[in-house]
Amino acid sequence: MTDALPPIELAAPDITPHRRGNTGIDYVTTLAADRPGPHLVVTALMHGNEIAGAIALDQIFRMGLRPSRGRLSLVFANTAAYRAFERENPYASRFIDEDMNRVWADSLLDGPRDSLEIQRARQLRPLYDTADVVLDLHSMSAHTPPLTLCGRTARGRALALRLGYPAWVVADEGHAAGRRLIDRDAFIDPAGERTAILVECGQHWRQETAVVALESCLRMLLVLDMVEPDAVRPRLMTRGEPQHVVEVTQAVTVANEGFRFLEPFVGMEVIERAGTLIGWDGDIPLRTPYDRCVLIMPARRPRPGQTAVRLGRMTG
């Protein structure tokens, strides 16, 4: 993987006007319609250097967009890490103490650990506990095509396909290092109805990534029948790519120092033959387990205990 700093085409918006909101939680605003409907929570800045989501939420405020039914809550999550963002060292502000998207198990949130990210997750948990649908906006280190992580539920997959874009829909079970927001019990209960998906909108700081982030929000509002189509369709790109579903069969967790990939993979490469060498975990070779294996979100700097890459099989 290359360590060269990619171009930063995006400017981090000033989100301080959104601090007070109207919910009693800093940087959380709920817009409610008169007609009943679902509660959609859209989250940006789970990681402080993933600024495209913040741009999308700021644009929604500037558009004056309001739901025609139900409630729309807009959340700027790890604002402390966002305030630390520096264009000269943009990877450093992913978090302050720990990855905020690995702390969403109730056992952890109710426990003694007290990092800044856990404190913020405790503030936000009551809001997420009222959500019918969560859209969590993220971006990626590599210039990988946008993708939706839909978890393992049929309803998560169906929602991702109804959006129509991104073209890649990835069904997975998360990370060994901790539970993501979309993996909270209410969202993964096979008998439940509440749904959460995560959209990786593209490379962190490319102009197109902010376009995909806003488009994901607008598509979700359309699918949930929460806005009038004419209010958002002019901002939607014409997307002709067919959607593909990939089932993750293995999340490769780094066991040794010095993990390295054989090539500078960026993600969504399809490796045609089973047994193809793709990297080394210390002295242990990492090979593809089946034909047409998809490499999903290879890590920029794989470290022990973290996910190096997820391996997936195309099912549709």
Score class of each variant (00 low, 15 high):
Met1Ala: 06
Ala4Asn: 04
Leu10Val: 00
Ala11Val: 10
Ala11Gln: 11
Ala11Ser: 07
Ala12Gly: 00
Arg19Pro: 01
Thr30Met: 11
Ala32Asp: 08
Pro36Val: 01
Gly37Leu: 04
Pro38Trp: 06
Leu40Phe: 09
Leu45Arg: 01
His47Thr: 02
Gly48Phe: 03
Ile55Asn: 06
Ala56Ser: 04
Leu57Cys: 09
Gln59Lys: 12
Met63Gln: 08
Gly64Glu: 12
Leu65Thr: 00
Leu72Trp: 07
Val75Met: 08
Thr79Met: 08
Tyr82Arg: 12
Arg83Glu: 04
Glu88Trp: 05
Ala92Ser: 14
Phe95Gly: 10
Ile96Arg: 13
Asp97Leu: 14
Asn101Arg: 13
Leu109Val: 08
Leu109Gly: 07
Ser115Asn: 09
Ala121Asp: 06
Arg125Ala: 08
Asp132Leu: 06
Val133His: 11
Val133Cys: 11
Leu135Asn: 06
Met140Leu: 13
Ala142Asp: 07
Thr144Lys: 08
Thr153Phe: 06
Arg155Val: 02
Arg162Ile: 01
Trp168Gly: 02
Val169Cys: 05
Ala171Asn: 08
Ala176Asp: 02
Leu181Asn: 05
Leu181Gly: 02
Ile182Asn: 08
Arg184Asn: 05
Phe187His: 01
Ile188Ala: 02
Ile188Asp: 01
Arg194Glu: 06
Ala196Glu: 04
Ile197Gly: 00
Val199Ala: 03
Glu200Met: 01
Cys201Trp: 00
Trp205Phe: 04
Gln207Phe: 00
Gln207Tyr: 01
Ala210Thr: 07
Ala213Asp: 09
Leu214Glu: 10
Leu218His: 05
Val227Arg: 04
Glu228Trp: 12
Met237Arg: 15
Arg239Glu: 14
Thr249Tyr: 15
Thr253Gln: 12
Asn256Thr: 14
Pro264Lys: 14
Phe265Ile: 11
Val266Met: 13
Arg273Trp: 13
Gly279Tyr: 12
Trp280Tyr: 14
Asp281Cys: 10
Asp283Thr: 14
Leu286Asn: 11
Pro289Asn: 09
Asp291Met: 09
Arg292Asp: 15
Val294His: 05
Leu295Glu: 07
Ala299Phe: 03
Pro304Arg: 07
Ala308Asn: 03
Val309Thr: 07
Val309Met: 09
Arg313Asp: 00
